[in-house]
Design a protein around this nucleic acid. Sequence first.
DNA 1: TTGCTCCTCACGTCACGTGAGGTGGC
DNA 2: TTGCTCCTCACGTCACGTGAGGTGGC
Lengths: 277, 277
Amino acid sequence: MFGIGDFARHGRVSVRMLRHYDAIGLLTPALVDPASGYRHYRAAQLGELNRILALRDLGFGLEQIGTLLRERVEVAELRGMLRLRRSELAAAVAADAARLSRVDARLRILEQEDAMSGQDVVVAALPAAHVAELSAVAAGFAPEEIGPVIRPLCGRLGRLLAESRIQPGGPMLAYYEPSAEDDTVLVHAAIPVPAAAAGDGLAFTELPAVAQAAVLVHHGSMDGVLASVDTMARWIDGNGYRMAGAFRELYLQVGEDESEWVTELQQPIIPVGAGRQ
Amino acid sequence: MFGIGDFARHGRVSVRMLRHYDAIGLLTPALVDPASGYRHYRAAQLGELNRILALRDLGFGLEQIGTLLRERVEVAELRGMLRLRRSELAAAVAADAARLSRVDARLRILEQEDAMSGQDVVVAALPAAHVAELSAVAAGFAPEEIGPVIRPLCGRLGRLLAESRIQPGGPMLAYYEPSAEDDTVLVHAAIPVPAAAAGDGLAFTELPAVAQAAVLVHHGSMDGVLASVDTMARWIDGNGYRMAGAFRELYLQVGEDESEWVTELQQPIIPVGAGRQ
DNA sequence: TTGCTCCTCACGTCACGTGAGGTGGC
DNA sequence: TTGCTCCTCACGTCACGTGAGGTGGC
């Protein structure tokens, strides 16, 4: 029989761990002195301890280990637990590897720009939305081509909505679909509305959900949006994604003073190497 | 200005998170109503929030993020933090990948044996030790060749130690060195002693530390040790290691009844692919 | 008597999730 | 008046590390 100190030394664990394993019923000392509370372990219990350490080493939690030790699990069940653990570990490895490549991308951008740019890109899911919208065609993607089209569209959308007494379900947004034939762009001004909403002069449609979009908050006038779009494009490229879907703008704050505007830019993406959407 | 609920929705985070970030001073609401305690956020603060989320996404802790945001760190320092993060992530990936391969090895062994074997192998470091020892030559590695050599050696070692009044610093152990020329084995019986110890008929030597050893607790008579050695050998092979050093046995519990013996088997190993020790 | 080993609480860790219990404006 | 949003505690998470404060045998 070993005292807890000797047993811990032979088992290469801390005394605290042995007390903890005792407390949760994972490894009970062979003998506990009723008077002093001193714990005593048999040499053979080193085998039990090693079983615990081996399972912990595979990444199982102590509770699961307890189940494995006590309940004499069948081989099939053990195999199932190991396979689950395997897939969890594979997921963890993939997640950390992705993190790692994002850190690398950050370092590369830092080389180029020699400073933290003011804006940060985040990947997010975009939910589907039922919207009321107005559409028009612009000659191209340049701000001076888009602006004169989207602005009046938004104004009209707002007025029509008020006339139809529809309560909007969120801020106004725009999305852009390039023509397949020429350089023109189909511009949409849209706003979330309840499913039952109806109104003269408005088109109602479903904006599809997007699993992954690069998202960036743009501050100030839309005249300066190109810099933000460029930041986002380089982030997408540097992090192993590519654009896959219509670009959107969400108008979080608008008003008289355009320098106070806040817009969220949203670009649907998919990982490079994945099949077409 | 947004209420905390709207701001949370737009930022795709929980209300609880915003309160938490406020509590630790990471993201303070632009305005807090003194009467009600209601928090209000400016649209522009979504940029700050996204910065936090982007850094968290790289795996930084909230305290580090606070430092990064508040203290206007220089580019060199930021680069340093990113490089540190990169190496931490690389280590995490390697650790989880190793875990994953151990789980795979377990699954393969399960296929073969269709049950959990009673014994578990653990990898551990062996510390260096100053020992008193006696040595002799055995004809080979078979238990019936080793036994008649190691047993009397251990007996004599014990008696000499008692005669020399040396207090042992741990349990007795054996280690085995195969001859380079023939099938014989140099057998050592050793026991840790204080550095200053001396005694007639005893050799004193330094057992080297071992960075990694496969360790397994063998129960019962040494006649049955081959099964345990075999388990260990297959574990070493299945987990991407190879043997690299003299095999050791640590006698944790000995006595009249050999079925009660407990021995720890120790085999120094190195990962396959690593250079020679 | 002095060290040594052992004991039992109990707090801290990290980033929140999840109630409990209560309050202000439409 | 009823929902809705918001508020402040406070516990739980996971596997221990780290004191604090105290006790039994050589």
